[in-house]
Amino acid sequence: MLEAMPGKHRVYLVPGFFGFINLGELIYFGHALDYLKDELARRQVEAEVIIVLSHPTASIRTRTADLLKAVQETASGDDGPIHLIGHSTGGLDSRLFVSPGAQVAEGVDLEPFARRVRTVTSVSTPHAGTPLATFFMGLFGQRILKLLSLFTVYVLRFGRLPLRVVFRFGHLLARADDQLGWKPTLLDQLYDQLLGDFSSERRDAVSKFLSDVGNDTSLIPQLTPEGIDLFNASTLDRPGVRYGSVVTQARPPSLRTRMAAGLDPYAQLTHTIYALMYGQTQRMPLTALPLHTPAQTAALVQAYGAMPGPTACDGIVPTRSQVYGRVLAAVRADHLDAIGHFDQPAHQPPHVDWLISGSGFRRPQFESTWKSIVDFMLEDERPGITGS
């Protein structure tokens, strides 16, 4: 049995861009939450795993205040160790939370909780930014973002989009290179159709979530390579905190991956969405790519067989932008695979994949990835092993 540190371990799961945990059974971190609880119990570690409720597209500062609120509500009773695991933008929220001297709100003191943090783990996080944020800043991108937000919620609730929406949206995507072909009224009709399938109570919750996405998009410019450069210049690592990262790289879209998706119209549509976002993400400026330490480079080469190229990405974030601290795992997966949103309906509860990338990521890779995260969190508790 491991020797426990004073007080209960508290593990906070910090969601990324589409943090929709406020929608009842639509759990962003559902599979990760279950795995962590089971694995920590198996290791006889007294721990509580908490999912953070974040504003989906608000600024990193606002989202970090959301994280602080969750910590205040659940970790004020003792001085036990805290671990932060952030997916996508959640990794940036976690870094700001522990940054010495960070100010997230007037008169709010982070320090009593920040100094209890032992580990910060980021999963598919844009530490050097992502060009996709630049795309979403445009009027065209903003409308697509709103529709994709609803797509995500709908698929996780019902399993897939209705064919009537698939064919109409597929027709629009086929003309994506000609933005004049995207008629706002058609996008609005698709939006209204999907929203109408929810119950009245759930429709109100979904509408509020999508309203949050549309009303406060201050996060988006912060995630551009230029915006994140300022974040990195002002966000310092905290001495004594160990930083680790899970890195994802997906297969580039091609005729082969499209054929592999099969003849199902829904799979073809989601693969087209994936191809659209992948094409925007791979436009990372060479000057924005971070330099890696020899240990980080060795980990990437060992995992992928070669250093990922400058255009390698997971469909949302460039692969080399995701490296921060120790590389805990580098896997072939798209942006949502690593937190459990991949195609494996036979598992209970089922894994549902709304973005068909053809990565091949499945439950064994998921469990191996999250085991490496647990190993990292508890590393200091094993006799003779220290963090690095």
Rank of each mutant, 00 (worst) to 15 (best):
M5H: 07
D178K: 07
R283L: 14
D380V: 00
D353S: 11
S321P: 00
P345E: 14
S357V: 09
L161Y: 13
D38N: 12
A32Y: 01
L328S: 04
A233E: 09
L300W: 05
L223G: 05
A133S: 15
Q282K: 11
F158A: 02
T130S: 11
Q280R: 10
L53D: 15
Y243S: 03
L132R: 08
K37H: 15
A303L: 13
L96I: 01
T217H: 06
R157E: 15
L289Q: 15
F342N: 09
P253W: 00
G19D: 07
K371I: 00
I85N: 04
L163F: 01
V11S: 05
G315K: 09
P225Q: 10
L289N: 02
T257L: 13
T224I: 04
L33D: 12
I85K: 10
A47W: 04
V323R: 14
G315P: 05
M284V: 06
A102T: 06
L84C: 09
G181L: 03
F135T: 14
Q296K: 04
P15W: 04
G360P: 02
S200F: 10
G91D: 00
Y266V: 07
D79S: 14
M259W: 15
I144K: 08
D216V: 07
S372T: 01
D78I: 03
Q268S: 13
A58E: 07
S207A: 12
D216R: 04
D375K: 00
Y324E: 13
G279I: 07
D337I: 10
T224M: 03
T185W: 10
S388M: 09
M259H: 11
G86P: 01
T257S: 14
A288Y: 08
A41N: 04
Y12I: 00
P112C: 01
R326N: 10
V317H: 14
R326K: 15
L219W: 06
Q72Y: 06
F342T: 06
R363L: 11
V331Q: 15
D380F: 00
R363G: 03
F97L: 07
R251M: 10
L161E: 05
L336I: 14
P162K: 01
G138W: 13
E201P: 07
P285Y: 08
F366K: 08
P239E: 14
V206T: 03
R202E: 15
V153G: 05
T270D: 08
M284C: 02
S321V: 13
S368A: 15
S234P: 01
L147N: 11
A75H: 03
P112G: 02
F158L: 11
P81A: 06
E226G: 08
G19I: 06
P100C: 00
V155Q: 12
Y154F: 15
V331K: 10
T125L: 05
D237L: 10
A174H: 12
A299Q: 06
V317F: 05
V323W: 06
D66I: 06
S99T: 07
S122K: 01
P221R: 05
F135E: 13
L355V: 13
G141E: 05
S359H: 00
Q142Y: 02
E379A: 00
P345T: 07
Q222F: 02
M277P: 14
Q348C: 06
D66Y: 04
P252Y: 03
I82V: 08
T119S: 10
L186P: 12
T270A: 09
I82D: 02
G325C: 08
S211T: 14
S54A: 12
